[in-house]
């Protein structure tokens, strides 16, 4: 049952159904004759029909645009669920469905910690919290990545400012904004190198020494 039944007389409903059939291309010959008969005594009917047609066309356009992204969702992205025996591909396919570099970073962390991103919260993974689970949004996955990285010491924090890379107006009247999210990461390494050119112009890596500096602000 609908949440709310509109108050309408049977005559008014019959008129609306008739208009709806015409708009939807479902009207029979009898419907058209009825419509013509009604219009003979009610001149507003044609205007109402035109308005209903226009309204339907506009609504259809908006719904078509808004629901179009559904066409890009393929089960092949989720196919790993059906073949969990290939752990590496499984992890990449599952996390990769979000398509972001942040999720890719999660893959690396997952691989190190051996967590299964598709395992549920009760799965025996050795880590109750887990990092990524099916149903998480990209934002959730990113937050988990930052938290897990901070716990492991590989992520310092996210830089709050997001930097606009490009902005493009869309046909829908909206604006597509592409921007950078910046994450400050930390690694401890044994040696450092810098890139240089040898006498033949070839790129070579030259060992360097990093001088001691005052304690980091982090």
């Amino acid at each position: 049952m609908p949440d709310h039944e509109p108050q309408q007389t049977p005559e008014s409903l019959a008129r609306d159904v008739l208009i709806t059939r015409v708009v939807d291309g479902e009207a029979s010959g009898g419907d058209w004759r009825t419509l013509a008969g009604m219009a003979a005594s009610d001149q507003t009917l044609w205007a109402e029909l035109a308005e209903a047609q226009q309204s339907h066309d506009e609504l259809t356009r908006a719904v078509e645009i808004a629901s179009a992204p559904a066409e890009s969702v393929e089960l092949s992205d989720i196919d790993a669920h059906l073949a969990p025996n290939n752990p590496m591909e499984h992890r990449l396919a599952t996390v990769g469905k979000w398509g972001g570099w942040a999720a890719a970073a999660c893959v690396a962390l997952l691989w190190i910690t051996g967590l299964d991103p598709t395992a549920g919260p009760n799965a025996d993974t050795g880590n109750q919290a887990g990092l990524v689970s099916i149903g998480d949004t990209p934002e959730d996955a990113f937050d988990r990545y930052v938290r897990a990285g901070q716990e492991q010491g590989t992520v310092v924090r996210e830089i709050p400012d997001r930097v606009v890379y490009a902005a493009r107006p869309l046909e829908t009247g909206q604006v597509e904004v592409t921007y950078l999210r910046q994450v400050l990461e930390r690694r401890i390494v044994d040696e450092t190198y810098r890139r240089a050119s040898d006498e033949y112009g070839r790129t070579v890596e030259v060992p360097t020494r990093v001088r001691r500096a005052p304690p980091s602000a982090f």
Partner: peptide, 12 residues
């Protein structure tokens, strides 16, 4: 059919 007809009226 009835719900679409009524829905369009409500929308209008």
């Amino acid at each position: 059919e009835t719900r679409i007809a009524r829905g369009r009226r409500m929308l209008r």
